[in-house]
């Protein structure tokens, strides 16, 4: 399998690559348009703020490449948020591959922001490798709104999409590479998709 992890300079791509190595898949971390377009599957990771990440994508000339992929594309955490039309974080225009907007989470008593830690999933889609009640690890201060693309969610004052799916595009708001056995099942299902 030819798996490309999009290299945006900074970011936590190390642990994502290692997670795939556990399945015997050596991912290529690259910002090369041809390598990304030619991969069997593509992972868009993201640590940081939306504005900075989109600027990195534009600077590498990758926005068009990512929009035109027909193979499975997995966005992780900020990488999932970039799949939407726009983000309130830095008021950023994103890739527009999934309808909707990313908004800040609102802190409340007993509900700190960022949403950080292991939360319990409600799963709508049986193809994700995830089960209702699985705990997975989140670390985010912004989130999308639920919609027809929502495949799994958590309750955090409002319903937060934990997984979105639309055509070839899959997004995980949580960190599958740091979610123990449940995260491994999710990545396995992506590799098998």
């Amino acid at each position: 399998m030819n798996l490309a992890i999009v290299d945006l300079g900074y970011g936590n791509v190390g642990s994502i690559g290692i997670a795939f190595e556990r399945f015997g898949v050596a991912a290529k971390v690259t910002a090369d348009r041809d390598l990304i377009a030619g991969a069997d599957k593509v992972v868009l990771p993201g640590v940081g703020a939306a504005g900075h990440a989109m600027a990195q994508i534009e600077a590498r000339g990758l926005a068009g490449t990512l929009r035109s992929l027909a193979q499975p594309l997995l966005g992780i955490c900020l990488g999932m948020q970039l799949l939407f039309e726009r983000s309130d974080e830095d008021d950023t225009l994103c890739l527009g591959l999934i309808p909707g907007r990313v908004r800040p989470l609102e802190p409340a008593a007993g509900r700190p922001v960022p949403h950080m830690g292991w939360s319990r999933l409600s799963v709508r889609d049986s193809r994700l490798g995830l089960s209702d009640g699985d705990y997975v690890y989140f670390a985010h201060g912004f989130a999308s709104d639920p919609g027809p693309e929502t495949a799994a969610s958590v309750d955090y004052g409002r319903e937060i999409p934990a997984v979105v799916r639309s055509a070839n595009r899959l997004g995980a708001q949580f960190h599958p590479e740091r979610s123990g056995e449940a995260g491994a099942r999710f990545l396995r299902a992506f590799l098998d998709s």
């Binding site: 900074y10 970011g11 640590v47 940081g48 703020a49 900075h52 670390a139 201060g141």
Partner: peptide, 8 residues
Amino acid sequence: ACAFGSQC
């Protein structure tokens, strides 16, 4: 926070 996000 600017480079990596507050969650880091």
